[in-house]
Design a protein around this nucleic acid. Structure first.
Lengths: 188, 188
DNA sequence: AACGATACCTACCGCCCGCCAGGTGAAACC
DNA sequence: GGTTTCACCTGGCGGGCGGTAGGTATCGTT
């Protein structure tokens, strides 16, 4: 995962992975017979983490999502692996394409359910949860990209909070969501 | 650009580019002394297109953006090049990293200006144009990724319209934006 | 007619790629 | 206690990688 974050899938060599894992390339190939199957293994491992984390959480709410975004803001490596691989995956014949296609479908369904249990069908602009779900997913991914490129200028967690406020129909008013720089004022 | 869309930057070889361009690898290297400078050339060409198109348009409004999204929906190859390269760029020492960092900064500023001239400071949820701009950029990019992976299920233009309605504060009501499937009803 | 720049070409370099063949030493099983 | 299985190793293979060296045909210029 580290190396994919650093160089992408096609830019990562088996030898480099083996070296960082502390064995020879052939030792690595003993466990994963090909480079493609190694990537599948990586994706499966990530999936297992995700579902375990999801099971540990109780009911998902939009605030759980905000917490997840905040958590990710502290783990740029993980976010980078995800962003690089997701971009990689739309490439021709990429082994992770199917994985991401299924994943996004699953994520959209899950997000729609979260929105429905939280807001019912009363979303602004006559939106249904099913129509808002892809937007929610898009915001999370798009913000990750901007944040990875320019963490100084993009406050991922605050921006995501802004979007949640938008989905609430702006009922938060001028008080709005809490900005990071209001929580951590510059040291004197 | 075609080959980058198909295989990513690191996955694209000079020989492959040369072949598709109809010359030898060394003929290509005559015009672009290294692979990295070739990528710079590609990005510069894209930039020249973009700014030419922007100059041709009059004042930018959110409806111009919606038109751009609709236009992109008919050019998956261009969108794919952009998405793959953007993901690629967060990779270590990637030659396009600086390009995308600057680009996003520029895009956010431009979008904030569009939002301000269109809505003033009266955005829902107490949002300012400067805070809504990264969300707008994120939605566009995130939707592109989902759409590339699953064009059947994700209606990029309709979803973007939904987001614009959200930014208007849902003043569109139940009539909302026009969905693609309402425009093109299934044939009898 | 001479000259320099341009736009390519052939030939080659050393390196790295994913992967295969065939071992070895230790543990597990019967 | 013999056999099988596992977890690795050394060694090598064919091919593709980005890039260099040095040539040649075609220009416009003087």
């Amino acid at each position: 995962m580290e190396l994919i974050a650093e160089r992408g899938y096609r830019g990562t060599s088996l030898a480099a992975v083996a070296e960082r894992a502390g064995l020879t390339q052939q030792g690595l190939l003993h466990h994963f017979p090909s480079k493609e199957l190694l990537l599948v293994g990586v994706l499966e491992a990530r999936d297992r983490w995700d579902t375990a984390a999801a099971a540990a959480t109780g009911a998902w709410r939009t605030q759980t999502l905000a917490g997840l975004v905040e958590y990710n803001a502290g783990r740029p490596g993980v976010v980078q692996t995800y962003t690089v691989l997701a971009g990689d995956s739309v490439t021709e014949g990429h082994p992770a394409r199917d994985f991401f296609e299924r994943r996004f479908r699953r994520v959209r369904e899950a997000l729609a359910e979260v929105l429905r249990t939280e807001y019912g069908d009363r979303l602004p602009g006559g939106l249904t949860p099913e129509r808002a779900a892809p937007l929610l997913a898009a915001v999370m991914d798009g913000l990750q990209l901007q944040w990875l490129l320019d963490p100084e200028e993009v406050d991922m967690a605050a921006a995501f909070g802004d979007f949640l406020a938008l989905l609430q129909g702006g009922r938060g008013g001028a008080s709005g969501p809490v900005r990071r720089d209001e929580v951590e004022p510059p040291a004197p």
